[in-house]
Design a protein around this nucleic acid. Structure first.
Lengths: 79, 79
DNA sequence: AGGCAAATGGCCTAATAAGGCCGCAAATTA
DNA sequence: TAATTTGCGGCCTTATTAGGCCATTTGCCT
């Protein structure tokens, strides 16, 4: 995976997180309150700044109230 | 997520990777050849030693020839 | 305009994953 | 038995995430 591909992956994942959060009408603070992730960290993840770890993916899923695998569902086509 | 929960998560994920690889009758070196991940690294991941990053999950999926979300499918019940 | 709440960005430290090489013991196959 | 393959463990350095706090700004509502 090239650095460029990794950038695209991070952006794509972040966009997915944000779309799901907004679909559920949740604020960053509401999500962070449900999963112990700092709200500013979640904002940065949504902006594609981090190549998040497995545990963080699981935490995000918990905060969003959905299954972890759904957070990767959109990656199936391009990666 | 407590340190203990994180340990369980890593072990669970590693076990999933290994099961899928063996179901497909692939060796560590065969998987590594398909995804540019070091074979010893994959062995350690299977042993639950790493809290792998998103990009590594995607790489593993590529090496195993399956969709990334399938690697998290088993986590849905317990996390 | 004023007041809130949300989003965002900066900054920090300790922990740890990435990325990779080498070697060995056990299993497999010839 | 000899040869090969496989799984796996050690070791290393650099890069980056986790985890967290604080300040500013943006947007919304009254």
């Amino acid at each position: 995976m090239t650095p460029h591909e990794k950038e695209i992956l991070k952006k794509k994942f972040g966009a997915t997180i944000q779309r799901i959060r907004k679909d559920k009408r949740l604020t960053l603070r509401q999500v962070s309150a449900s999963c112990q992730l700092d709200n500013s960290k979640i904002a940065k993840i949504e902006d594609g700044k981090f190549n998040v770890a497995l545990s963080t993916i699981v935490e995000l899923a918990r905060g969003l109230g959905i299954a972890p695998s759904l957070l990767l569902a959109e990656l199936n086509q391009e990666f």
